[in-house]
Design a protein around this nucleic acid. Sequence first.
RNA 1: GCGCCGGUAGCUCAAUUGGAUAGAGCGACAGACUACGGAUCUGUAGGUUGUGGGUUCGAGUCCCGCCCGGCGCACCA
Length: 568
Amino acid sequence: MVDASYSVLGEIKKDIVARIAGAISKAKEKGEFPTELNPDIRIETPSRPDLGDFATGVAMAIGREIRTDGRSAAGVIVRHLDLENSPIRQVDIAGPGFLNFFLDKSWLQPAMARIWAEGPSYGRTGYGKGKKVLIEFVSANPTGPLNVVNARAAAVGDCLASLMQMSGYEVHREFYVNDAGNQVVRLAASLEARLRQVRGEDVEVPEGGYRGEYLLDMAKELNETQGEALLKMDPEELREFLGRYAVEHIVEEQRRVLLEYGLKYDTWFSEKRLRDGNAYMQVVELLRLKGLTYEKDGALWFKSTMFGDDKDRVLLRSDEKGTATYIVPDLAYHKNKFERGYELLIDLLGPDHHGYLGRLRAGLMGLGYPAEALEILIVQMVRLQRSGEAVKMSKRGGEFITMEELLEEVGKDAARFFFLMRSPESHLDFDLDLARLQSNENPVFYVQYAHARIASIFRQAREEGAALSVGPNEVDFSLLKDPSEVALMKLLAAFPEEVHEIAEAREPNRLIRYMTDVASAFHSFYTKCRVIGDDKSLTEARLYLARLCQIVLANALRLAGISAPESM
RNA sequence: GCGCCGGUAGCUCAAUUGGAUAGAGCGACAGACUACGGAUCUGUAGGUUGUGGGUUCGAGUCCCGCCCGGCGCACCA
């Protein structure tokens, strides 16, 4: 059912594409275009409304290919264009060869009816065809609280996942817990040192350990609740216990903060489980069997350069036990994702990991997976500011701002909005004072205000006894003809396509832009057209439009993980 | 040295992936309801897109060189 659901606007675009393709075939028959011509026909929305409802630059592309100018190629297409039974009223050739299509406004009516009918699921399409996608994001080390970059990755990953779900993918959100290896050893050692400090011993947190306050607090609590039992453990056993205890509690904290953020993962995948089964050593064996490894200097190397990596990588170290490097369990992890049936893996990584990308991709190719099945999105760093002044983020200086503190200070809506506003791959300046500001300087409220304002219109309408739930069948659609009304309807009609395109581009920032545009179109409409008035039919038509706009705003905000308030 | 990301209005960023007159928000300035929320709307000013070349009907976008900023370049994870 969902698979068949494409948007009204998508159907119209498809129809236009088909007609252009038909015209091109005819031109080929007449010998006006070469038969091998097979251009990609893309329908766009022109930058200005006076340029029509839809446009394509295909004639220019053809012109380039057959060495003629775009305008004459456009002329050929127009001459053969069949407009029988089409909402297309007029086709213009403009500028260097654009084809501009002007449609009869009547196409908007079924598009609006669709919004009404689908409500909260308006925006859903079947483009993704149920393809199974696993998005792994945040995956912070369980060695301390989440930071602001984690918060950014959480907003981006969650929104991207929602967008892809909306476009018909089967999406799974996953958090990879690095609860094994060296860092857990160091974490245990750090906690042990803190525990001794609590008991009055004069010891330092070891070199390379974690010095954050949170371990001291944890040590105090541990000492009170099970101090006696701990004293009885032998050193080996104690370390083991402390490592497990610390990881467990830190992960629990991370989970709690993310839930506060409105983010719920489908799975928390443990690296330790992968390691305990020793299954990850299969990866090494597999690569060895494929002849993709060699020994050098006492270590086992992977010929990753065969798959585009800068240099070959060590899989097993030259130490006594031949312990595995990080890449091994990570490859096993990604292999496991494929084995669970996911066809597309999307990893959101921090900027410090981009050197790692080549190696991971090479490894997966070595294991026989297609390179395109893994997509990596680098979520760039966040620079915090307070009224223009940079906030230092040094871990030593104690000025480290955690995700939780950020949420306390600015709230989840503002945080998510700000993180989504920018393209994930560019650096972000986050002004804490601006995000906290309850005024028009803060862009978060602009969109929420539009939603609340609509709710307010309905409260008012109820008081005045206007009909509140007039559907597409009762409304006189022809009354919605003011330019501000038409502009708003066009934007609303574009939502499903917009969601799909944004999802394909992996650019959640464009969702923020879209909903800001909708809010802006609504505010203009509101100023220009009075909704509740003496004319009953007009009031009904405008209430209908307001309701549709509210649905779209609510759906867009929901995709972004931002609340849609009834009042503010 | 090599690689990646970025450099666009005073500030923070867009630009339908090579298209039409480079656009928004904030800030500045000038205006707008005697009825639905002024957290709004309308308008004005503000640009040699870091820089020099190249590709073509057409470049912010692609190619080459240079400059500036950030981040990577482990038998760490």
